[in-house]
Design a protein around this nucleic acid. Structure first.
Length: 873
RNA sequence: GGACGUUUAGCUCAGCUGGUAGAGCAUUCGCUUGACGUGCGAAGGGUCAGCGGUUCAAGUCCGUUAACGUCCACCA
């Protein structure tokens, strides 16, 4: 015996040690080499705020599978890792932590605050990285990046200035989404809409110099303070006479015009709309068209401004109550109706967003969106599955300018300086101390920072050294595959696409592999508030990283959500254990000086069979991986290793392993060859256990992870032997089935007589039947007459087992008759097809031939069954 | 209001380019078979959501309906 393994696989003994071994050997490090085609993935950088959740675990498992596969195929493989500074999320966390100390941002000041932020990054950014390592991720840690590091910041400035010079970035006063809690603007994509129960307040505004009123409804009466018009549809005859007149704004008493605008829907409500340009995006548009005044009535934290002393300082909901009360007192409130409407909330903190007019920086999107759409239309970048291209197109086709400035401190500061003297804006990559226009030194940098996604958008090239023409950039850009969840297409994928095209002239990746969400066992989204999140590290601790990876890679198709449950991981853990024990068995039979994996001479039928099935597995798994069908690949590996290799080949191999002749060496060699090949195929999915076992088995090279991925070889396919083994296995299954039905224990051996036209095959099968079908001995012949025996009939053979004392002849006959009827029915079905002239003439020849073959076999079986029944009479 | 997804065995899900349905778990029966009881052998269980169409042939393609889910959308 060469080496001995423990009875059960213990991941804890293996994982950390193996990972350290890989690190020490620098296998993860990408290195340009002659003749090696690069394969690159940049990691979706996790936020430094949180810790690894199941979504990350899935995302990174998929990436590691692809990376390890390509690395074994001999590609120069780069998986570039890193983290994201996550400006708004991180800043919120830090502010929250400061609150406990009684501190605010302002008390601390910008510089001190940023020191804290960097401390945070050092602490939590590192934690994420450690978690990725626990998963077995083979990232090139020497190239680890951070969105706020020097290189990425340089790229950000470069891009900002370029876009500004091309007029694709501008500063303007627009209505934007404002989060009154985070105290910053957010982009359209960062607003989440949800249905909320609310009310419709029907109000009436009195016409000036008249007794008439215009009735209208609003969901937000407090915004009335900022009303600067009332609008009706120009084609609405009911109101045409009022257009151009004035109404008196209740409470406030301001005179505001009645304007005509297409925006108003005649059918909806009364057909009259109050216009508050400062607090509603549509109203803002209407205001622009009619030159209306924009009156901001709220402070940044959504309280009424001092301009309205009666309500000043009240938050928007308090003010709403007070104003409704006053409206009622004034007789302006007609009625209140229940109403459910869509409310925008901040995707970070959930606070209701307040549309607000404010001066912000924007990226002009239309010119950038067009080439990004075209690139996908032309197939330069493909989505897997393809249906997500629709989501992508839909976003880009309806895109509005991107608000990129944030009133935050943690992030890339906007590289724009304002001149106190002439008001000119100097935009520059370098720090500015003089106005480029008037030369004044009284310049102040914009205090705001950029949207986190602005730097993420550059991630595929900023991390490779762009804008410098570095070797890495030349070598690894464009990258190959981007792996991410569908929820992040509008935030990230889309923005990387147009950024890559605009700044590098190339799409950033050729394939976007989209996966779904990991849900809990009940199908609910895992969330902090529900407390149903499952920590990947706990799962790894309990079942091992390989089991977790296997679970995440299996049993779901790309783009669909999956449910996660311990049951599934347990099944995966069992699979790992199965592999472990197969290895244990093989090792038991090996001697100290076993040769490296090779295909021996003098192959037996079972050797050719397993080699052939294995070879097809190589072909299929490779094909599946190339096509990103990871779930299918892993399912095939599972079936092969468990059901084919372990349950059949190993069992059959035992026959020769117990002998002491050269056939034993053949069996050992084939076991080692096929098993280590299967381990290689499985390695991308279960890296730890495959490495551990591979190291123990005879092998060449120093690690499975840099060994060559098996390549399909047609010469190792043995169709004839596969067919023979099929006949044998079918016969064995039929015998086992029959014995089980009769409750004959396996330990009770009995002779088997086989009548068959495949004499040679079944003569070879004798030893297999002894091992696997409880045969004491097997006799193959033309004709047997064994009275009182059980007969078992397959398409290829009739077998008799003399189990006299156990056989109930009457029942036996009934059983055979039942089987005959079933077989006849099957034959009818096939014959129906064959008798259909349309089928014979129109179906492909191969399909017809298959049916003819089936019919012939069924006829053989029927004949045998009938004979057997006849004999019993 | 649009768009997309899901609907297959008791449960969770596979099923690529159309050729009488598969896995894991669960259930039932049997097993100290010298790798593994985290195991071995065997069994039961499905009109592939409904309807219509294309086709020699449909879980698989087309249309439609329903239920559930997701995303998008300025109806105040």
């Amino acid at each position: 015996m060469a080496k001995e393994l423990a009875k059960q696989y213990d991941p804890k003994n293996v994982e950390d040690r193996t990972y350290q071994f890989w690190l020490d050997k620098k296998y993860f490090h990408a290195q340009k080499a002659e003749g090696k085609k690069p394969y690159t993935i940049v990691i979706p950088p996790p936020n430094i705020t949180g810790q690894l959740h199941m979504g990350h675990a899935l995302d990174n498992t998929l990436q590691d599978i692809l990376i390890r596969f390509r690395r074994m195929q001999g590609r120069d493989t780069l998986w570039l890792p890193g983290t994201d500074h996550a400006s708004i999320a991180t800043e919120a966390k830090i502010v929250e932590a400061m609150k406990a100390e009684g501190l605010t941002k302002e008390m601390l000041g910008r510089e001190k605050f940023l020191e804290r932020a960097w401390d945070w990054k050092a602490k939590y950014g590192g934690r994420i990285i450690e978690q990725l390592k626990k998963m077995g991720s083979s990232c090139d840690w020497d190239r680890e990046r951070f969105t706020l590091d020097e290189g990425c910041s340089k790229a950000v400035n470069e891009v900002f200035v370029n876009l500004y010079n091309k007029d694709l970035i501008y500063r303007g006063e627009r209505i934007i989404n404002w989060c009154p809690n985070c105290l910053t603007s957010i982009s359209d994509a960062e607003v989440e809409y949800e249905d909320q129960a609310g009310h419709f307040w029907h109000l009436r505004y009195k016409l000036k110099d008249s007794d008439e009123y215009l009735e209208l409804a609003t969901t937000r009466p407090e915004t009335l303070l900022g009303d600067t018009a009332v609008a009706v549809n120009p084609n609405d005859e009911r109101y045409s006479k009022f257009v151009g007149k004035k109404v008196i704004l209740p409470i406030v008493g301001r005179e505001i015009p009645v304007v005509a605008d297409d925006y108003v829907d005649v059918e909806f409500g009364t057909g009259v709309v109050k216009i508050t340009p400062a607090h509603d995006p549509n109203d803002f548009e209407v205001g622009l068209r009619h030159n209306l005044e924009v009156i901001n009535v709220m402070t940044p934290d959504a309280k009424i401004t001092d301009d309205y002393p009666k309500y000043a300082g009240m938050d928007r909901y308090e003010a709403r109550k007070a104003i409704v009360k006053d409206l009622e007192a004034e007789g302006a409130l007609v009625r209140i109706e229940d109403y459910s409407h869509n409310v925008g909330t901040c995707y970070r903190c959930g606070t209701t967003v307040e549309p607000r007019v404010s001066k912000q920086w924007f990226v002009k999107m239309k010119p950038l969106a067009i080439p990004a759409i075209e690139a996908v239309e032309k197939g330069e970048t493909k989505f897997v599955p393809k249906r997500f291209e629709k989501v992508y197109f839909h976003w880009l086709e309806n895109i509005r300018d991107w608000c990129i400035s944030r009133q935050l401190w943690w992030g890339h500061r906007i590289p724009a300086w304002y001149c106190d003297d002439c008001g000119h804006i100097t935009v520059s990559k370098e720090s500015v101390c003089k106005c480029e226009k008037c030369g004044s030194e009284k310049v102040v940098q914009d205090p705001d920072t950029l949207d986190t996604w602005f730097s993420s958008a550059l991630w595929p090239f900023s991390t490779l050294g762009w804008p410098e023409k570095t070797e890495d950039f030349e070598n690894y850009y464009p990258t190959n595959t981007l792996v991410t969840g569908y929820d992040i297409i509008p935030f990230w994928v889309m923005r990387m696409m147009f950024s890559g095209i605009e700044h590098t002239g190339k799409v950033p990746f050729d394939t976007v592999l989209i996966h779904g969400l990991v849900r809990d066992a009940l199908g609910r989204k895992m969330s902090k508030s529900l407390g149903n999140g499952i920590d990947p590290l706990e799962i790894i601790d309990k079942y091992g990283a390989d089991a977790l990876r296997f679970t995440l890679a299996t049993g779901n198709s790309p783009g669909n959500d999956m449910r996660f449950s311990d049951d599934k991981v347990e099944a995966s853990r069992n699979f790992a254990n199965k592999i472990w024990n197969a290895a244990r068995f093989i090792l038991m039979n090996l001697s100290e000086d076993e040769p490296a994996p090779h295909i021996p001479e003098n192959l037996a039928i079972e050797d050719k069979w397993i080699l052939s099935v294995y070879e097809k597995l190589v072909r299929d798994v490779t094909d599946n991986l190339e096509k990103f069908e990871l779930g299918m690949a892993v399912a095939k590996l599972y079936d092969f290793i468990w059901d084919v290799f372990c349950d059949w080949y190993i069992e059959i191999a035992k026959i020769r392993l117990q002998k002491d002749d050269e056939s034993k060496d053949t069996a050992k060699a084939v076991l080692v060859y096929v098993f280590s090949g299967a381990l290689k195929l499985l390695h991308p999915f279960m890296p730890f256990i495959t490495e551990e076992i591979w190291q123990t088995l005879p092998h060449e090279g120093e690690s499975i992870m840099i060994s060559e991925f098996p390549v399909y070889d047609e010469n190792l396919v043995f169709e004839a032997e596969e067919k023979e083994m099929d006949r044998i296995m079918t016969a064995i299954r039929a015998i086992r089935n029959r014995r089980a039905e009769m409750n004959v224990v396996a330990s009770k051996k009995a002779k088997i007589f086989v009548e068959t036209q495949f004499t040679e095959t079944f003569e070879k099968a004798g030893v297999f039947m002894q091992k696997l079908a409880s045969a004491s001995e097997v006799e193959v012949g033309d004709k047997f007459d064994i009275p009182g025996a059980v007969s078992i009939i397959t398409e290829d053979a009739r077998m008799y087992i003399p189990l006299d004392e156990l056989v109930d002849l009457k029942a036996e006959k009934a059983r055979l008759e039942k089987e005959l009827a079933a077989t006849k029915k099957e034959l009818d079905f096939v014959n129906n097809k064959l008798n259909n002239p349309n089928f014979v003439s129109k179906a492909p020849e191969a399909v017809v031939a298959k049916q003819r073959d089936a019919a012939a076999k069924l006829n053989d079986k029927i004949k045998m069954l009938e004979e057997s029944i006849e004999k019993m009479n």
